[in-house]
Design a protein around this nucleic acid. Structure first.
Lengths: 339, 339
DNA sequence: TTGTAAGCGTTATCAG
DNA sequence: CTGATAACGCTTACAA
């Protein structure tokens, strides 16, 4: 391994000077020696050791992507398709800014604190079901933190998410506008997650405002994103159709597509016998017949915003918190019939 | 920040002793002092600094998941659904063994070498389009390396992948057994990737052996996993149907499901007018009508094997290379009609 | 513009 | 069993 000292002695200068060159402190070293040192670095193949660097400077150049899973929850959340896109986006951007991405699941506050001290991460993206205790620990760290899809909107932390409540509202409104009044809602409950419940809340409250309160019996719940659990919703939904339900809001496109396909398998004609609207605007939504109407938000923008927010905080360019709520819109693709 | 020295002085011992306690070297320290030190550690909330640790010991406790993208390729590969599951699996297992997972995209060999030296990673999982040059650099490092879905089977490296060639063979055989002789194959070409071409190769060679060589005009190619690119396959496939093609092998379930849905949208009745068989056995395959027949391999096992292989090498328990090729099987779900 | 020296937090060596 | 002491590779006052 080539160290900075090796370079220094090979170039006939001190380690300090080499260090200064590496960090581009042009004012502290003559162009002449700088060029020479650069040449030696290239020739010897010197590559700095990040451990040594982060030990002495207070910056580790590590950005962590923390996924909080409350104790016994399965790795469910991490299987969200958005998550992978976010990781890709974050890794790319952070890498281009000279950072390294660490992925870490933390079950407890203690895990988090330990991890933070272990590596002295420069910044944190945090996803998952963050509770009070956890967010408190985050706020307590002096590092930039960006919450992604956080269930709680902590005033001391930056966050990025879509307007789930409004999405629920728009979904309800869309169905109402098409003449539906016998409505239901299908929702996946993921422990500690607030995203889906918010969508339901928007849906429910908008219906109440419109004078068509949601019948609690027509809220169809499954307890995980697994196929088996999702499939268990189909029977109750079918029963509700028989009893007059004409339209269904669904908390995610994934679930909507699943219900749709199962109903069609059972011989239902859609949207004639049931109108549906999803949430998230997955690409698969245009593959079905009918195509899936849904609530759209810019998934790419979400990752971009998170990254740009982090970058600004890291560079010190921005100190105030960024609390970004992405707008949602209805995409009408034909899975909602006009009554 | 509480350091090991702080603990030492608080406990009235030397830093060395504290270190010994932390590492569980029971033989080198009396139970009495050990207990006392443990108590102090707990009380003061001491948490070791990994940078310092990896600087002095030769182990960083960092495991890197390297994704190699050849220069201009888009982040396509990382969007493979398997990738996320692999990450989740790897992060969990490695964490339980006391390691930290870093995610890193490397475009060039140089990127890789730099990264390796930067962090002195203890082990490497590598995905993506690895060429000779890249794999040589990997073999040159003294750290355990596990290639996942590597296009080349480097004799000096461990790898895990499914039997893509045999999958192609089985797909061809399945179609032949159902009486089809007018066959085609749809394949996504991802730069530097060998997985899909291998599937095609197996398909093609099996057909040749059976005396029904694949008409090169019936190989339908698209150049990325993007929706737009995939959709461009549908027209040619439709044309081929008109000209007598009765069955289609497809390199992935994703693509198969897309083609299936588009043909159905255009009024084709499946599998009556076209039989199809995919590859990968995605959960979505059971949502369609007909359900998608496919080539199955155990995606979970793939990640598990990769992890277990890495663990063994890290613990020194195993020094020989593990070169694992997962078996594939046909899953008959009804998207292949009997002629 | 350059160099010296101290020290970041930890582990390893070796002597007591 | 325990403890000095010297590294590990690098940055950063401060001195020249």
């Amino acid at each position: 391994m080539v160290t900075i000292k090796d370079v220094a002695s090979a170039a006939g200068v001190s380690a300090t000077t080499v260090s200064n060159v590496i960090h581009g402190y042009h004012s502290r070293v003559s162009k002449e020696t700088a060029d020479k040192i650069l040449a030696v670095i290239e020739e010897m193949g010197y590559i700095p050791n990040m451990s040594a660097r982060s030990l002495v400077s207070r910056s580790s150049h590590v950005i962590a992507m923390i996924n909080h899973l409350p104790s016994d929850a399965s790795g469910d959340l991490i299987l969200d398709p958005f998550y992978l896109r976010a990781i890709a986006q974050i890794e790319t951007s952070m890498r281009e800014s000279g950072y390294y991405l660490m992925l870490r699941t933390c079950n407890t506050r203690r895990d988090l604190v330990t991890f933070l001290q272990n590596w002295n991460a420069d910044g944190l993206f945090v996803t998952g079901a963050i509770g009070e205790e956890f967010s408190e620990a985050l706020a307590g760290s002096d590092r930039p933190v960006v919450l992604i899809d956080s269930p709680l909107r902590n005033e001391n932390l930056s966050y990025v998410l879509q307007d789930d409540y409004q999405g629920g509202v728009l979904a309800a409104r869309h169905l109402l506008e098409h003449g539906h009044t016998q409505l239901g809602y299908a929702v996946t409950t993921v422990q500690g997650q607030n995203m889906f419940p918010e969508r339901l809340r928007g849906f429910r409250e908008e219906l109440a405002r419109a004078g068509h309160p949601l019948d609690e019996k027509r809220i169809f719940t499954c307890c995980s994103r697994s196929l088996a659990s999702s499939l268990s919703l189909v029977d109750p939904v079918e029963a509700a159709i028989t009893e007059g339900m004409t339209a269904l809001g669904v908390c995610s496109d994934q679930l909507a597509l699943l219900i749709m396909s199962q109903l069609q398998k059972r011989g239902y004609s859609l949207p004639a016998q049931l109108s549906m609207i999803g949430f998230g605007d997955l690409p698969q939504g245009i593959l079905t017949t009918p195509e899936l109407s849904t609530i759209h938000y810019d998934i790419e923008a979400k990752a971009v915003q998170a990254v740009s927010c982090m970058s600004k905080m890291l560079s010190g360019e921005q100190t105030e918190l960024a609390q970004i709520i992405l707008p949602v819109t209805v995409v009408d693709r034909g899975s909602v019939a006009r009554l």
